[in-house]
Design a protein around this nucleic acid. Structure first.
Lengths: 148, 148
DNA sequence: TTTTTATGTCAACCATATTGACATATTATT
DNA sequence: AATAATATGTCAATATGGTTGACATAAAAA
């Protein structure tokens, strides 16, 4: 069956379960706060580029503004994300993380980091570099993104 | 910001975008058939273990029978999956792929294989082995599964 | 003054999941 | 033979995370 017809079944399964491992810890932690992956992605992009406008965030997330609305409103209601009117253009709202929001993002990144660290511990620095290079190459073969 | 506080941002991003690349081609192909990832996982598990019972499939998928119901019914309606009463226990329904279902699964696996092949082409056989070993180790650090 | 832009909200819809309740057929137990 | 347990299936209500379309408002640009 599958194993006979396809040479890469092992790699496909490894990647599937590795990604599950990669997301499960943060997913669980988010769930205890009543948050999901949508909130995680917002925290990630806003944390990585403070004073991001709503429009810029939408471009990064590649979702509709209606889809962003609910989770962003929640994050603002919980004071994890704060928005301020841009001094340059009063139509624009600039988003950044509150101290609490940064702390949560750190926790989430820490959970993912823990997995990577535990994994890399069993391999050499060269192996780690190779893994990253190969994974980045794979990412580069992905769907074309509009980073215009 | 994030880059300062966390050493593994590069690896985290690489894995995120690699997984996106990994799933996008098959997701797109499934969409043209009016199917989604739920159907893909059913095809994958039934294809990998023909004459699987509904209960066994549920254990592998780790979802509720209500969540399985709709996509499985669709696959049966499209004659991609066929079910037959077990000769040993007439309560049990054994699932397998039709020829058409196997063809679709092959196509989907082929799309994922293409990405892996294109990626591995740029690396040595040792690098590929390393990547697999590391990715499998990472998968092993995932959430404990009930394979009782 | 008019138009464009940035944001935001309402409504309807879809996909994928959940839990609870219940029905049916079949097998196992008492 | 009657009863209990098992395997499947369905109905309803709910949640999350998306979609499109329509429309409102404030501010900047034409």
């Amino acid at each position: 069956m599958v194993d006979i017809k396809n040479t890469y079944t092992t790699e496909i399964e490894a990647l599937f379960y590795a990604y599950q491992a990669f997301t499960s810890a943060s997913d669980q932690h988010l769930a205890t706060l009543g948050l999901g992956r949508a909130h995680h992605r917002i925290l990630y992009f806003v944390g990585g580029a403070p004073n991001l406008s709503v429009g810029e965030l939408l471009q990064k997330l590649q979702i509709s503004k209606q889809a962003l609305s609910a989770p962003l409103r929640q994050l603002q209601a919980q004071s994890l994300v704060v928005g301020a009117v841009s001094p340059e253009d009063r139509r624009v709202k600039l988003l950044r993380l509150s101290t609490e929001g940064e702390r949560l993002l750190d926790t989430l990144l820490g959970l993912q980091t823990d997995l990577l660290e535990r994994t890399f511990l069993q391999f050499s620095a060269e192996d780690r570099q190779m893994w990253l290079a190969l994974t980045q190459t794979m990412a580069g073969h992905g769907p074309k993104m509009d980073n215009s």
